[in-house]
């Protein structure tokens, strides 16, 4: 299972955002919070390592990483064996 707080913790410790991740809501725009495309690649790698998953090519796009909710949805889909769109 994956919770929004798992993702928040990962973001807070990473230094990829310019704001404190614990203050972000489920739907806040992470790109407006300082996430760059370089940062989103590293975020994906960290998620793969943390949850022992692999993101398929069709999820490697901007929208997948745009909010904590979107990331949680994608990770949950991969953990459940169904890739969330």
């Amino acid at each position: 299972m994956v919770s929004s707080d798992d993702i928040r913790d990962l973001l807070r410790d990473s230094g990829w955002l310019t704001v404190d991740a614990s203050e972000l809501s489920e739907n806040d725009d992470l790109y407006a919070a300082g996430l760059t495309s370089h940062g989103s690649v590293n975020l994906m790698l960290a998620l793969e390592e943390r949850f022992d998953i692999e993101f398929p090519e069709q999820l490697l796009r901007r929208r997948t990483f745009e909010s904590i909710g979107a990331i949680r949805g994608a990770v949950a889909g991969l953990l459940g064996g169904t890739a969330a769109a």
């Binding site: 495309s37 370089h38 690649v41 590293n42 994906m44 790698l45 993101f55 090519e57 490697l60």
Partner: peptide, 13 residues
């Protein structure tokens, strides 16, 4: 450099 970074995630199909 940017492409190298993308290739850490991208897998050619």
């Amino acid at each position: 450099g940017n492409t190298a970074n993308l290739l850490l995630a991208h897998k050619d199909n």
